[in-house]
Design a protein around this nucleic acid. Sequence first.
DNA 1: AGAGTCTTCCAAAGCGCTTTGGCTTTTCCG
DNA 2: CGGAAAAGCCAAAGCGCTTTGGAAGACTCT
Lengths: 340, 340
Amino acid sequence: MNLKQLSHMLALSQTTVSRALNGYPEVNEETRRRVIDAAKRHGYRPNPSARRLATGKTGMIGYVLPTGTAVDIDPHFVEFLSGLGDYARSHELDLVLSPADADDQETTYRRIVANRQVDAVYISSPRPADRRVALVSTLGIPFIVHGRSEGLDFDYPFTDIDNEGAFHEAARLLVQLGHRRLALINGDDRETFAIHRERGVRRALAVSGLVLGEGHVCSMAMTEENGYRAARRLLERSDAPTAIACSSLIMALGVVRAVRDLGLTIPGDLSLIAHDDVFPWLKPENFSVPLSTTRSSIRLAGARVAERLAARISGLEEGARGEVWPVDLVIRGSVAGAPA
Amino acid sequence: MNLKQLSHMLALSQTTVSRALNGYPEVNEETRRRVIDAAKRHGYRPNPSARRLATGKTGMIGYVLPTGTAVDIDPHFVEFLSGLGDYARSHELDLVLSPADADDQETTYRRIVANRQVDAVYISSPRPADRRVALVSTLGIPFIVHGRSEGLDFDYPFTDIDNEGAFHEAARLLVQLGHRRLALINGDDRETFAIHRERGVRRALAVSGLVLGEGHVCSMAMTEENGYRAARRLLERSDAPTAIACSSLIMALGVVRAVRDLGLTIPGDLSLIAHDDVFPWLKPENFSVPLSTTRSSIRLAGARVAERLAARISGLEEGARGEVWPVDLVIRGSVAGAPA
DNA sequence: AGAGTCTTCCAAAGCGCTTTGGCTTTTCCG
DNA sequence: CGGAAAAGCCAAAGCGCTTTGGAAGACTCT
């Protein structure tokens, strides 16, 4: 059932039927009702391919997915996706993932906008001076950055959490508890979020005249194994930290294992605070010693990004407004005063 | 730069240019060369919207993503996606995720095929008599099921791993080691994979005249917390199992925690084997006691599914061939003879 | 040389929708 | 009541590609 048939059936022109369906004003309300009714009865659904050829609108939002045998998609992605998908569903949006060589995403960005394959895109895991942000911005397609870049000479719309503030608070608490030697087990420090977190810790330390000692900050992919290695290395030093801030729950698993392997205890020998993105399948309160966390639902962020993208597509939002969400600091058993 | 302009530029008809570019035989090789050359020089890229309107081909594969605030996307999904994306990239395929109400995916399947939004779809986490499989099969769009349904009265193409065989082997090993009371901590038993695993365990036990005791099989969403609860419940029974087979590494984390909380040890008091989908961020060899596993890379499965979808789209594969991959049994420190 | 066959190319008709520009009718108002 | 404005509808022109149905010219063959 296509427009032609439907309009023929109603003894109306395609123009009128199209307009009636799309809510244009120049059609009699009674006619509109008739049309809508008939459309529903016959299960008419405009062909999206035709529509997009005519309008350029696709009803899809895009994401360039870095791939490669050596590239691991972050498990955080799936949570983000849950939120994004949930919002997208309620707004009849689909999501298209365009796989790209992790080292050359720009070609793919160019392609999807040149081809008008999507109405908007989002960018995640931005780095300082991120070229994708610059590119997408000049390409002129609506977009939202999840996270922030840095050192770009223009503004852009983003939704981020206050990583610096979160880790500042976490570190401040630890310092207040008397800890003097802190360490940071961070994610890949080419990404802005990791830089911000480190900055937060340093700033908190600086207030008390402390510094993040040389070798007291590790940054690497956020796996359990890396968490273990980092913690092990840190705790075996002569100037081992008495407190660790950790960028992910998964790494924290490794930290806990290292602590145990070394015959130490939390929080007796080591205080630990990790960042919690709120996974349904791994909860900080369920760690053998309940884990203190800086908490922010990445899923909500996904929903918010979708919401903003939808708003930008329909022209309801514009400009380069960035928003930064506060992060909760949740104290549980894994922190205590510094050992004597 | 569109076809019209390009053909004008070459003083050829759109027909000829189109054919030259798409490799049709009725065009002089020298002309073809000229066309291809000019196209490249001017960066001509056929507009996909137009092409899909004309041909119906989209160059996209679809997946209906179950969503909802109460619905958690499985972290396995992201690994599967890595493999799928990696293959898709090398074949210029994009992936479209259509979010759907978890309880009504069929409407969405109908929509994406009626609208010809994708060239093929895949279905994951199938259940017995899965209606999606039946639907998609009648809808006549190329598809692959990742996993298997059961009790359908027709054949369909799938790629699955030998879940039953894997858990059969695991259980057989445990029985050989003298264990008499096994338990199974399984995933959601509405899904076929879980049913198969349970079947495998039962079959192995049956050989020695054993059974999976009432209350010795738990099935629930595969979270750390559920793993903990299940293990705790099992181990506090008077007829506590001496060995557990577990459907996921994440649940196994919980099992290990429960064991520790109860002051027990692995493998002294309890032998443990879990299924490993091969996550880059959580490895069984890194458990405090290295974990024996049944191992199968879900990522490779993703790549394989993509490969088969591509083959079906281009007509290279047809029929309802199902393939079942063997699963490795990897023995590590978490299994030992049954306690006396 | 004329008939038949390839080879190579073209004009034009879709694909199914939106949108421009215009044409009737109604409605409004002095 | 007459003219202007508004309302309601339509025909047709795209959007950019593929594909059908020729047609012109080059070749082969008798």
